[in-house]
Design a protein around this nucleic acid. Sequence first.
DNA 1: GGCAGTTATTTCAAGCATAAACCTTTAAGC
DNA 2: GCTTAAAGGTTTATGCTTGAAATAACTGCC
Lengths: 155, 155
Amino acid sequence: MTSPEPEMTPEPDSKGRLRLWLKLLKVTRSVEADLRESLRTEFASTLPRFDVMSALSRHAEGLKMSELSGLLKVSNGNVTGIVERLVDDGIALREAVPGDRRASRVRLTRKGAEEFARQASEHEHWVNELLGALEADEANAMIEQLDRIIREEAQ
Amino acid sequence: MTSPEPEMTPEPDSKGRLRLWLKLLKVTRSVEADLRESLRTEFASTLPRFDVMSALSRHAEGLKMSELSGLLKVSNGNVTGIVERLVDDGIALREAVPGDRRASRVRLTRKGAEEFARQASEHEHWVNELLGALEADEANAMIEQLDRIIREEAQ
DNA sequence: GGCAGTTATTTCAAGCATAAACCTTTAAGC
DNA sequence: GCTTAAAGGTTTATGCTTGAAATAACTGCC
């Protein structure tokens, strides 16, 4: 009474994984859109700026441009523009790296650190509400599965 | 011996949900980067183009610009540019909507439909490999949880 | 010391994305 | 008919993003 096995099924779960990917995309974009909107209306800022500030806030000693783009997994030229605007706004500053005149180190100004603290606190609330449908154990389980995807990708 | 309830813990799982969000972002961006790279090298195309073609392929009768931007959840003006380039490349075309001279209907050309079929097939393989760390039941479970997030968001 | 190769970063062109302003057409009241 | 409001789209200004090319500085080798 079991259904007959089809002869040729090279990737049995293919459709399910595709569906998962589309759903992942949908959720991520939706949450991102909400966060962007909140950052815009509450802080007149953007997600890329927040991401850069977040990375800088975890490295008080500063980061080189290439370290920054490596952490955020974005292109090198991309960071140039974002940091430029942050510097113009007094949020970040560039320091010379002694012994290497090519490089510069970027870090948050006092004002930038204070501003980020405010934004990060709100950001955490927003995320907590947006993902409120999941309980702590569900969230942790999902984190583990996502970690497996990341590890596999890195080979 | 039970631990006393803290007076003020408005959002106990806040940190876990924040971690989950950062992980979701990481996975999504990583997969997106791989897919973008593949689309670029194999088909000289981009993700936004693929998304538009995908939507159009599911609506052979064509879509109005506003329907398209609604489906993809992107801004109206955004779609204008992408469709413009697809039309220039002979992938899509615009038709007048009888009885409404404001609107136009976009659909894939024959060439566009064939091209999308090729790309979609490869795309499914890529996704299947990128998410290969998850089994079918895990994928399905995650889809359900993600659906809960989406539903909650819509209120 | 010179110079080949590497590393750090910026610049550039093209495309993507948003929000806001705008234009045209349609629909609704009166 | 005329006015007004809404709907469908495009345009514009600004910013994000990439990949490639350019620039500059450093490193090592002979």
